[in-house]
Design a protein around this nucleic acid. Structure first.
Lengths: 130, 130
DNA sequence: TAGGTTACGCACTCAAAGGTGCCTACTTCC
DNA sequence: GGAAGTAGGCACCTTTGAGTGCGTAACCTA
C-alpha cells in the first residue's frame, strides 16, 4: 500500500510536525501571552497558571494544563513550582520557545496583511456559486 | 459567560484564522507541490489533478478534491478545466497563494533547524518521568 | 466548622476532521 | 466487449481534539 510510504513521508517531514505542534487551539495564544505579556505588545515574562487562566478567557482548566504540559515536554516552556502560601506555579518561555515565538510573528504579520483578502475571496466564491 | 467573549476574540484573531487555514493535513503539501514543483526544489508551476494525486501518495480522492476546492475558494489557487481528450483540470497558485507559500518557507526553515531539538527534549522528558 | 483558592487529575461526552468504498460519464486502447 | 484513466460525488464510519463535570490536598479566613 501507499499508506506506509505516505506515513513515513509525513512522519519525516519537519514542516508537518511543526504545524501539528503549533496548530493546537491554545498553543499560539499561550506562546503569545508568555512572549509578549498580557497586552500582547510587551516583553517576554513568566506567568502563573491562574494568570494565564484569566487571560485566556474561555480555556478550560484541563486544556490549559494539558497544553502547558505538552509545551514543557517539548522544551518550549519551563514550569517552576513556587512554595508560596497556596503553592503557585510559574511558566516561562525557554530560549527555544522564544525563537519559535519570534518565527510566529512572521506568520502573524502575513495573517494581518492578507487574511482579509482570503475572506473577501471566500464570500465572493460563495456568492458566485449560490 | 466568558464563552461569547472568547469566541469573539478567537474569531477576530487573524493569526488563529491563518493557522486554521494552513493546518489541514494536506494544505501544506499541496502548496509546496504547486510552489516548488514535484521535487520540492524548483519553480512554481501548474499541476493536474492526477499529477497531484500521484505525488501525494496516500491522499484519498475525496480529501484531495476537498482541499483543492477550499484553497480555490479562498483565492489561493486557480482551477482551470482543459478541454483535452479526457477532460483534465489544472491547478496553479495565485499571487496570494504564492505569497503564502513564500511565508511558509520561513516556517519550514524553523522546522528544519529546530524540530530535532524539540523531539530530543520530548524523549528526555518521557524518559525522566518513566 | 464551613467555605474559598491554587493547580491540577480523571472519566465521560461530543463534534469535526479525515478515511473508505462505491458510484458516475466519457473516451481510448487491447 | 471489457479494462483502464480522468475528475470527481455521495454515504458511511472511525479517530481525535476539545469541552464538561467532579474530586483532591493543602492552606487560610470568617
Amino acid at each position: 500500500m501507499d499508506k506506509a510510504e505516505y506515513n513515513a513521508f509525513l512522519s519525516a517531514c519537519p514542516s508537518h510536525k511543526l504545524l501539528e505542534r503549533i496548530s493546537g487551539k491554545w498553543v499560539a495564544l499561550i506562546l503569545s501571552a508568555l512572549g509578549s505579556g498580557p497586552d500582547c505588545a510587551g516583553q517576554p515574562r513568566a506567568m502563573r497558571y491562574s494568570e494565564l487562566s484569566r487571560l485566556l478567557a474561555g480555556v478550560s482548566q484541563k486544556m490549559l494544563t494539558q497544553t502547558l504540559r505538552s509545551l514543557e515536554r517539548d522544551g518550549l516552556i519551563t514550569r517552576t513550582v513556587v512554595a508560596t502560601v497556596p503553592v503557585t506555579v510559574s511558566y516561562e518561555l525557554t530560549e527555544l520557545g522564544l525563537s519559535l515565538f519570534t518565527m510566529m510573528r512572521g506568520l502573524k504579520l502575513w495573517a494581518q496583511t492578507h487574511m482579509d483578502d482570503v475572506f473577501t475571496n471566500r464570500v465572493a466564491y460563495d456568492n458566485a456559486s449560490a
